[in-house]
């Protein structure tokens, strides 16, 4: 330590700063404030923009439609949701849970609801053409249910081979709950959500730069949540057979051919 030009000596418990010390500190603190505030602005300005997906937190709404379980729990509505998104509401549970457990609880109390027109209460999550309904009130999310089954008229295409590059997402966070709901910084959350039963969605890029979102099953049509956890939020290549089921593309993934890129 040296300040050879001065015999100044600062003692904290004595009042006041020696004059040369004061001058240096004023300069230093001014520079520090200016530099730090400049860096603060640059950090924010240069960060990746967030998507405009919406989580309508606090706005519990009722939606009516036909409940289906394949390829994932969904409510096939006839409107009542934003025009820009699919009428096929993907159902998810409260927190990082899938809807299946809560729906089973509801069915235990009200009987089988599959293929019935029902009304559910929940919180809407929507963005980029897709809508998800969180069963915020868990097993108390059912408002009413018709007694009669409704014939499911969703179009189902023939299976086609596919090979895609992209990222496995949890649709609840990605379509609105979290900003961002993708990539490395969201990886552990996506793993928790998918592990908890939320259907995994594969996001791949089309040639025009827009995204395509597909539900994922294994080649036998079974859930693959636990088996794909090591690949969640990573850039991977997958292949198998795909087919359209209503508005959703479903990928029947060959687990042995998943490849990190």
């Amino acid at each position: 330590m040296n300040s050879p030009k001065s015999n100044e000596f600062y003692i904290g418990w004595k009042d006041g700063l020696p004059p040369r010390t004061r001058r240096l500190l004023i300069l230093f603190i001014t520079a520090l404030f200016t530099f730090s505030l400049g860096i603060t602005y640059l950090v924010v300005k240069n960060q990746k923009p967030f998507n405009n997906h919406q989580f309508e937190l606090g706005n519990i709404q009722e939606f009516s439609g036909v409940l289906v379980y394949n390829p994932a729990p969904m409510l096939l509505t006839e409107g009542g949701i934003p025009e820009t998104v699919s009428d096929e509401l993907l159902l998810v549970g409260y927190g990082k849970r899938g809807a299946l457990g809560f729906l089973q609880e509801i069915e235990e109390e009200h009987g089988q609801l599959r293929q019935r027109k029902i009304t559910l209460r929940g919180t809407l999550i929507h963005g980029d053409g897709r809508a998800v309904l969180e069963l915020t009130e868990k097993a108390k999310s059912l408002v009413e249910a018709d007694e009669h089954e409704v014939f499911n008229q969703r179009e189902i295409s023939s299976p086609q081979p596919f090979q895609l590059e992209g990222e496995i997402l949890d649709p609840k966070c990605y379509f609105g709950v979290m900003k961002p709901g993708e990539g490395k910084i969201h990886k552990s959350c996506a793993i928790r959500c998918i592990s908890g039963g939320i259907p995994p969605v594969f996001r791949s890029k089309r040639s025009d730069g827009t995204f395509e979102y597909s539900l994922m099953k294994d080649t036998e049509g079974q859930d693959i949540n636990q088996r794909i956890l090591p690949y969640v939020a990573e850039n991977i290549e997958i292949s198998g057979q795909s087919q359209m089921v209503g508005d959703w593309n479903v990928l029947y993934v060959d687990m042995d051919k998943i490849r990190r890129i």
């Binding site: 040296n2 300040s3 000596f9 600062y10 240096l24 500190l25």
Partner: peptide, 8 residues
Amino acid sequence: LDSRFLPL
């Protein structure tokens, strides 16, 4: 480097 920073 410089004892005048000691108040910090």
